[in-house]
Design a protein around this nucleic acid. Structure first.
Lengths: 151, 151
DNA sequence: ATTGAAAGGGTGTCGAT
DNA sequence: ATCGACACCCTTTCAAT
């Protein structure tokens, strides 16, 4: 369903979607037109969702990242729905996942500075009751692959 | 240095970098050529780093995400360097940040299945001694903005 | 310095061989 | 898969503000 050649193309495009078809073709030993068809196929079948611009967060005034762990007030469908609604309304919360273990949710918050976290915290507690909320500031990005381990 | 119009353009491009200049121009009330120039400036000045393809992880056989918290064995320059080197060598570890608080590092691991985590764990402990290692499996993605809160 | 209109060039796409 | 023609879109130039 997905040949090694397709994976190689995906690997190129996840690093730079502006790569000319001629360059892609040279790397995977295919003609530019054939690459075009493969890529169209990958798009139609949902392997490639869309192309996006990678913006330098620091450059646009959002250098700070805070991870927040949350444990639920109650384990009920109502609380879950309310929590989902709360985080959806706060744009600084850019990612929320539900986890196994004693911590229920992990939130990634992107901000101009650590001082701004207080705003997000207050916005959150105003919308939903939580058992525990624990914020950790990102001091350093050790690895940012931003790329999937393909192949 | 960065007008509201520039932010609007960035907001469009971080969602879909294939948006034609004519469409962008219509939204920000600018001609396509003017948009082209603005974007070129944004690239040159480092606001836009590059364009990348968003790949559907599940579709390419990597549906599982595991977050791992690590506390250091010792707080020394040597350990830190060795840890940095260790995570750099393991492709499944796609993101590593150093945090404030009792947990030193947060790792994001992308895998075909939860069973594959054991491989990553063993690869990690073979390379670096750690005080505590704690893995939490992502059960559900509640919010995946994948977009910065601009404007 | 920044804009819009029009010309020019590059690149992707589609057909035929 | 290669070749060639077409079409589209981005880019550049130029006059104007």
């Amino acid at each position: 369903m997905l040949t090694p050649r397709d994976l190689a193309i995906l690997d190129i495009l996840q690093r730079d979607s502006d790569t000319p078809l001629a360059d892609i073709g040279a790397k995977v030993h295919l003609s530019p037109s054939a690459c075009s068809r493969r890529i169209a196929h990958l798009r139609e079948n949902g392997y490639i969702r869309r192309n996006v611009a990678m913006i330098d967060r620091a450059r646009v005034g959002l250098p700070t990242t805070v991870f927040v762990t949350v444990s639920a007030r109650t384990h009920s469908a109502g609380w879950t729905e309310q929590f989902r609604h709360a985080v959806a309304q706060i744009p600084e919360i850019v990612e929320v996942v539900r986890l196994t273990g004693s911590i229920d949710y992990l939130l990634r918050v992107v901000l101009p500075s650590v001082d701004d976290y207080d705003r997000v915290y207050k916005a959150l507690v105003a919308r939903i009751e939580m058992n525990t909320v624990n914020a950790s500031i990102v001091m350093e990005t050790v690895k940012a692959a931003e790329t999937l381990p393909l192949g």
